[in-house]
Computed example of a mutant assay.
Amino acid sequence: MKFRASTERFHSQFDWLDSWHSFSFSHHYDPRWMGFGPLRVINDDTVAAGRGFGMHPHQDMEIVTVMVQGQLNHRDSMGHSEVLKAGEVQRMSAGTGVVHSEMNLGEEACRFLQIWIEPDQRDLKPDYEQKPFGIGRDWTALLDPSGRDAAMAISQTLFLWRAKPQPGDELSLPAEGGPMLWLQLIDGALSWTSEQGEPATLVKGDGVGLHRDDPRLHRLRGTDSGADVLLFAMNA
């Protein structure tokens, strides 16, 4: 098990940006936290109104943005000019190269999780997709390699689900995906059974990587009305 407590994540803070990094990012470096399988970046970003990231390049990376609060204005060298709103997910395959900006042109701070996934092929044609997802108490598929059930497809054998369980709801593991699982708490709390058989709690910002066979993942339970969680499934 690899447990990443919310308070142990890397932290970048400026007058317009509050960013928590689950893995090594930018000048934050720790060889123990270089990602988890093909999952390379989980950044939990809060951006002040009227500010954001100007035009900057990416290459050979699958970039997924899960919008949590507010709005984010996207522009890129492929010709897209879109507004990403809470509840929507954006997928950008950087491929051979793309330049884009992410600005908060709304009237309040916005919050989103930006996720970078290493693709299984290089030098792909850049691509863009954006859509809303209704998130309920059980798992909703956001990413699926084959694009089933209205999920987005990326160039990697990686699945991503999101759920908002209510207190007492139990979350069963989806059958799809590889043996490596990463759980990331967006908000609220989940309980599970510790190795000693005692209830343990995961809270906002916590992340944990486990093998699919770990019995703790078969006893996930919502513990408050604000629980909001991502689940990744992938190969090594």
Rank of each mutant, 00 (worst) to 15 (best):
D214V: 06
A151Q: 05
G95W: 13
F23T: 07
L124F: 10
M92P: 05
L220G: 08
Q184T: 08
H11S: 14
D144F: 12
G97V: 04
E108R: 08
S155H: 14
Y128D: 10
R212E: 06
H58G: 09
D149Y: 09
P174L: 06
D138P: 02
E170A: 00
N235P: 08
M67L: 15
R148P: 00
P126S: 00
T46E: 12
A5M: 01
L183E: 03
Q71L: 08
D149R: 15
F14D: 03
R137P: 06
S12C: 06
I42A: 02
P179W: 00
G168L: 13
R51L: 05
S19H: 09
G168I: 03
A49K: 04
Q196D: 14
F3I: 07
Q13K: 15
T46A: 06
T193N: 09
M34Y: 04
Q166I: 01
H74G: 10
N104C: 01
M92V: 03
I135E: 12
K204M: 10
R9F: 01
G168K: 10
Q90I: 05
K125F: 10
F53I: 13
Y29M: 05
F25P: 10
Y29F: 15
E198M: 10
D30S: 12
G50E: 04
M92L: 14
S155C: 14
F133M: 11
G79W: 07
W116D: 02
A5F: 01
A153N: 06
D206F: 15
L158E: 07
H218P: 01
A233K: 09
V66K: 11
S77P: 12
T193G: 03
R40L: 15
R9E: 02
F23A: 04
S194P: 07
S12F: 06
M234L: 05
H100D: 09
D76P: 05
H80F: 02
C110L: 01
H28F: 15
S93L: 14
D120G: 09
S146H: 11
R4S: 11
F159D: 02
E195K: 12
I135H: 11
R91I: 01
F133D: 07
M67W: 05
D120W: 00
S12W: 11
P119C: 01
K204H: 15
M1W: 02
Q196T: 06
A200R: 13
H100T: 07
F14R: 15
G97W: 09
H21W: 08
G177E: 06
E107D: 15
D206M: 13
S6A: 15
A94G: 07
I154A: 09
Q166F: 03
H80G: 01
R51Y: 10
L173K: 00
Y128G: 05
K131L: 12
R40N: 03
D187V: 04
L220C: 08
G95R: 08
F10L: 07
R162D: 03
L158P: 14
P145M: 00
S93N: 01
L17C: 12
A150L: 12
S172T: 14
S191E: 13
Q13Y: 11
W33F: 14
H21A: 08
P145Q: 02
A200Y: 07
P38E: 00
P199I: 00
R91Q: 04
S101K: 00
E198V: 04
R162S: 07
I117K: 12
K164S: 08
F53Y: 13
A86H: 04
G50H: 00
P31S: 13
V229N: 08
I115D: 02
D214W: 08
D127Q: 04
Q121T: 10
R148I: 11
D15T: 15
